[in-house]
Amino acid sequence: MKKNFPFFLVKISPWPIIMSLNLMNLFISIVLWINFKFLLLMIIMFMNLIMIKILWFRDIIRESTFMGYHTFYIKIMLKFSMIMFIISELFFFISFFWTFFHSSISPSIEINMIWPPKMIKVFNYMEIPLLNTFTLITSGFYITLSHLYFLNNFFYKSMKALLSTILMGLYFSMIQMFEYMNSYFCINDSIYGSIFFLSTGFHGIHVLVGTIMLIVSFIRMYKFHFSLIHHINFELSIWYWHFVDVIWLFLYLFYYMLI
C-alpha cells in the first residue's frame, strides 16, 4: 500500500496489553508483599516488567534506527510527548511537596506542633545530602558537556562525559542507599518519616530510571545509532536527567536544609 504522509502507523504490537496485564499483577503482588511478606511474586512480576520494557524499546529502536519510520514530524511529536510526560512528573512531585508543606508549615497537635516532630533526629544537611547535591549538579554539568561534544562531532569525548554522568548517577544512588540504611527514623515514624521517604524514595527511583535511560543512550551511541540530526533518545534522556536534577535541588532545599 502506498502512503504519502509523515505519520507512522504502528503494526499490531503485543506489548501494550501484556504490559497492562503485567502492571496489574505487579500491583497486586506489591500488596501481597506489603501485607503478607510474600516477596517472590513481586520479584517475578518486576523481572517480567523489565523484560517487556526491553522488548518494547527494542521494537522502537528497530522502527526508528533500522526501518527509518521516525520522520521529522514524528520527532517533533516525540519531543512534545516527552515535555508532557515531564510536566506530569513535575505535578506528581508537586503533590508530595504540597503534603510536606501542609504538614510542616502548621504542624498538628499529634506531632507536638513542632517540625521536625518530637524525637525525630533529622539528617545533617551539610554531610551526605550536600555530597549528593554536588554529585547531581556535576553530573548535570557533564551531561551538558557530553551533548555539546556530541553536537560538535567529538565522539570519544562525548562518550567519556556521558560515562562520567552515568557513574555519578550510580554513585548518587549508592550513597542515597547508604544514607537510608543509616537513618535514625523510618517510614513509619510520623508524617515526617512518611513524607520524607516517599519523596526522596520516588526521587531515587527517578534517578535510577534516568540512569538506565542514559546507559541505553550510551550503548546506542557506542553502536553508532545516533547522528547529528537524529539522536532523540539521547536528547530526551538529557531532559529527564535535568528534571531529576532540579527536583533534587528542591528536595534538598526544603526537606534537608530549611526544616
Binding site: 527509518g68 562531532n153 567529538f154 570519544y156 569525548k157 547522528s227 547529528l228 540530526i229 537524529h230
Partner: peptide, 15 residues
C-alpha cells in the same frame, strides 16, 4: 577523534 556517522548515511526508509 572519531567522527559521528553521517546523518544521510545513517537514515533509512522514509526518513
Amino acid at each position: 577523534e572519531k567522527p559521528l556517522p553521517d546523518p544521510l548515511d545513517l537514515a533509512t526508509g522514509l526518513e
